[in-house]
Design a protein around this nucleic acid. Structure first.
Length: 487
RNA sequence: CGGGGCGUGGCGCAGCCUGGUAGCGCACCUGCCUUGGGAGCAGGGGGUCGGCCGUUCAAAUCGGCUCGCCCCGACCA
């Protein structure tokens, strides 16, 4: 009997985090494995999350002044060679097209791993004057990176993302843009996806190939590993020089523009699954849930069913009027218990139960996904179902953030002693986020990585500047940095 | 790319050691009956055991090769 029940459940998170994560994605029908190694299929429930996420982020990006465009999937192989760091970073993982139309191509085409090269090639033709600046474009597209090891959403051979590319007349303006986008990402992920973050600068070792400075938002997952959730790069004039982008400034001097690029990907879906999911399944933030409220009707006799359904449909109508994404589960032959479990697996934030007893009493039972069991249940008058739902959804959005924040905070520790840091990172799995003084020397960073497998995730901005000693070499260190094992 | 594990109806597995008509649970279809936390009964459909080669009267089972997938590590959004 116990085994029979186990079959209906996913691997407990506490038992095997990776298996739990994979189980959830398959069971909640977010994605499925594909016949192509390292590539996944986004099923409708998974893609719907991406669509909501994308639509909102797209609005926020456009608000900053960028406009959407689309550049080709294929890029001449020679383009990749033009920026030395860039080619070194990406060449090992590009897919190359050598044949087309049955013939070998004169010049192979690479499938974009990112679009700096082709976009800057075009920028060179569009930018001639300071009046052409700033130029700010964004594109939503797929990219391909031939990864050796893949995991659903977190690292797939092909993934979807947005990549913004901008060119500015001055260094200051480009640097400001880089930080503006970092803040757009931070606000979006924390508010909309309810995922708490740390953010800051990347170390030189972790920098984007070709960038002068990379900024990042990092989420600490419940297993104690950090996940890079988005990056914003200040590219300096590296690409402008490599692609010969030049403009005449107000004083008739020929200048290279200063550039940025920034992106987030479908990896964010993995972050949502990990940050909020539990052993019952997904727990989706209302903002991105394709179904925010599900109504489960309950009855015994046919005539009861009539009354219940009439009431349920009217509640659905009132929720729709209130702008809530609502679904009425009218499937026949399934018990309420089955439906409860089913919708919990899919992460629907709020469930409304209505049966003959409730219809008689003029009320409904509301069950919150973010609070398990009876404490998450409450009653509301039918007439107030829509109003209450809207309010509760807002609470759930906040509460999911608070819950995730509490877990992350619990796994974030300050260390001033290398031995303690090292002990914390021992063993398989994550070791949480370590907040340490670091002198900035790459050798000290390498030592930490090689001995603890933790890497520098972010060097926070706006530090208090309190002096300290590097946790590795003991030299004076002006800054603190976050280190963790990462996905 | 190194280490480990696994390939048997859609999914999860047993059978393999000790070759001999391919089985179980879930899911699916039909009917009855059911619905406040994963219902029950009855009937039914579906696989030739990842692929190739070999041993044998006979291979899911023994041997060799190969392909694929998953997990752990190094590399990376």
């Amino acid at each position: 009997m116990a085994e029979k029940i186990d079959e209906k459940k996913v691997t407990p998170r506490s038992q095997d985090f990776a298996a739990w994560y994979n189980d959830l994605i398959i069971r909640a029908e977010l994605a499925d494995y594909s016949p192509v190694r390292g590539c996944i299929v986004f099923r409708p429930d998974g893609f719907a999350i991406w669509e909501h996420l994308r639509d909102e982020l797209d609005r926020r990006i456009k608000k900053t002044g960028a406009r959407n465009a689309y550049f080709p999937l294929f890029i001449p192989q020679s383009f990749l060679q033009k920026e030395a760091q860039h080619v070194e970073g990406f060449a090992p993982e590009v897919a190359v097209v050598t044949h087309g139309g049955g013939k070998e191509l004169e010049e192979p085409l690479i499938v974009r791993p990112t679009s700096e090269t082709i976009i800057n090639h075009m920028f060179a033709q569009w930018i001639h004057s300071h009046r052409d600046l700033p130029l700010m474009v964004n594109q939503w597209c797929n990219v391909v990176r031939w990864e050796l090891r893949t995991r659903p959403f977190l690292r797939t051979s092909e993934f979807l993302w947005q990549e913004g590319h901008t060119a500015h007349a001055t260094r200051e303006e480009a640097e400001r843009e880089t930080l503006t986008m970092l803040e757009v990402y931070r606000g979006f992920v924390e508010d909309y996806l309810a995922i708490p973050l740390v953010y800051g600068r990347k170390s030189a070792a972790e920098r984007f190939p070709g960038a002068e400075e990379t900024y990042t938002i990092e989420g600490l997952m419940p297993d104690g590993r950090a996940l890079q959730c988005g990056t914003s790069h200040y590219l300096g004039q590296n690409f402008a020089k490599a692609f010969e982008i030049r403009f005449l400034d107000e004083t008739n001097q020929l200048q290279h523009p200063h550039q940025t690029s920034w992106g987030v990907s479908t990896r964010l879906l993995g972050a949502i699954v990990m940050a909020h999911g539990d052993d019952q399944g997904l727990r989706l933030p209302p903002a991105v849930a394709s179904t925010q409220v599900v109504i489960v009707p309950i009855w015994r006799k046919a005539e009861e069913g009539e009354n219940v359904l009439v009431a349920a449909r009217s509640i659905r109508h009132s929720l729709e009027q209130a702008g809530v994404r609502v679904r009425l589960d009218e499937r026949e032959g399934l018990t309420p218990g089955f439906k409860f479990n089913d919708w919990e697996m899919r992460g629907v934030p709020l469930r409304i139960e209505i049966g003959p007893r409730d219809v008689a009493a003029g009320e409904v039972v509301m069950a919150r996904r973010d609070i398990a069991g009876p404490p998450g249940k409450s009653k509301a008058p039918i007439a107030q179902a829509a109003e209450r739902s809207t309010a509760v959804l807002a609470e759930i959005q906040k509460n999911l953030y608070q819950q995730a924040k509490a877990v992350a905070d619990q796994n974030t520790r300050r260390f001033d002693d290398y031995g303690k840091l090292s002990a914390q990172m021992q063993g398989e799995g994550g070791g949480g986020l370590a907040d340490i003084h670091w002198c900035g020397n790459p050798e000290c960073e390498t030592k930490i990585r090689e001995e603890t497998r933790a890497t520098c995730r972010a060097i926070p901005l706006n530090q208090d500047g309190a002096p300290g000693k590097c946790i590795v070499c003991g030299e004076s260190a002006k800054e603190r940095a976050f280190f963790a094992k990462a996905y």
